[in-house]
Write a protein that binds this DNA or RNA. Structure first.
Length: 272
DNA sequence: AGATTCGCCTGAGAGC
DNA sequence: TGCTCTCAGGCGAATC
């Protein structure tokens, strides 16, 4: 499940092959993603040079030399891979972006929760990116921000930190992991977060995300980087998917519970 | 406005 | 073996 570390891993994998490359051709085999791929997407891309490969939250943003941009979201099961021209097509290979080098950027997404949308240069802000919270690794994500935004909130802490308006990129896996690291219960009301707890949570989210990026993300089933390799953060997971197994810190069996319709994992002893 | 629920999808795994 | 059912989950949109 691509969360921020997985998307960043993909971005880093793609950037050296994509930046500076002119787009030779584009083939769209399936337009029905989360939103349909607009008919004009191919024309926008072909002949342009890729100037940058950026990321905002879980959105990849490929900037073109004329200021137009391509937004890519991997959804649940999406992959964006750098492949050689002769790589055989697989089921769910929806889009090929063929570069002047001969390499292909191939978008593959069985569940089609992903998206591929144009962001014209004439459009200052894209609706999907407007209103997004700070990046967890940026300086403007700090205890003051998190504590301030949590005031008056009765929502559970876990869905609160998964809300992209509060902070971007924290999905279901890293939310459970960061809360364990911060020693906070996922079900506690966000509004009851003390200032010192907010300090701890910010530090925990930062550390969790940063370490996951270093490991190339977490591969449970689907995820692979641009080179097709899995991420190795799975072996670092403290609580996610470990229901019934002993807490790595205190030995207490890890509990699983639905919070905000999402499976959540925590240690009742370590997390108060 | 905040909180919750829904819906989009396919593949994997469980159960029969 | 093969069918059916359940679950997973990002996140915008709809609803309460």
């Amino acid at each position: 499940m691509p969360e921020l570390p997985e998307v960043e891993t993909v971005r880093r994998g793609i950037a050296p092959h994509a930046i500076g490359q002119r787009i030779r051709s584009v083939t769209v085999r399936e337009r029905r993603l989360r939103w349909p791929i607009p008919a004009g997407l191919e024309a926008m891309l072909v002949g342009r040079r890729i100037a940058a490969a950026d990321r905002r939250g879980k959105y990849l943003v490929l900037a073109l030399d004329n200021g137009d941009r391509l937004i890519v979201h991997l959804g649940m099961s999406g992959r964006l891979s750098v492949l050689t021209a002769e790589t055989a097509l697989k089921k769910h290979d929806h889009v090929d972006i063929v570069l002047a080098s001969g390499l292909i950027l191939r978008f593959h997404d069985p569940r089609r929760f992903g998206a591929m949308l144009p962001w014209p240069a004439t459009q200052a802000q894209h609706p999907l990116l407007a209103g997004m919270g700070p990046e967890p690794l940026d300086a403007d994500f700090d205890a003051g921000h998190l504590h301030g935004r949590s005031r008056g909130r009765r929502q559970a802490l876990k869905p609160f930190i998964m809300d992209g308006h509060i902070v971007v990129g924290v999905g279901n896996i890293y939310a459970s992991e960061a809360l364990f690291r911060a020693r906070l219960r996922p079900g506690m009301a966000a509004g009851r977060l003390s200032r010192p707890q907010a300090e701890r949570l910010v530090a925990a989210i930062r550390a969790t995300i940063a370490e996951a990026i270093e490991q190339g993300g977490t591969t449970l089933r689907d995820f692979a980087g641009a080179d097709g390799n899995p991420g190795y953060f799975r072996q670092e997971l403290s609580v996610y998917g470990r229901a019934g197994q002993p807490c790595r810190v205190c030995g207490e069996p890890i509990r699983a519970r639905l919070i905000g319709q999402r499976s959540s994992f925590y240690c009742v002893r370590c997390q108060r």
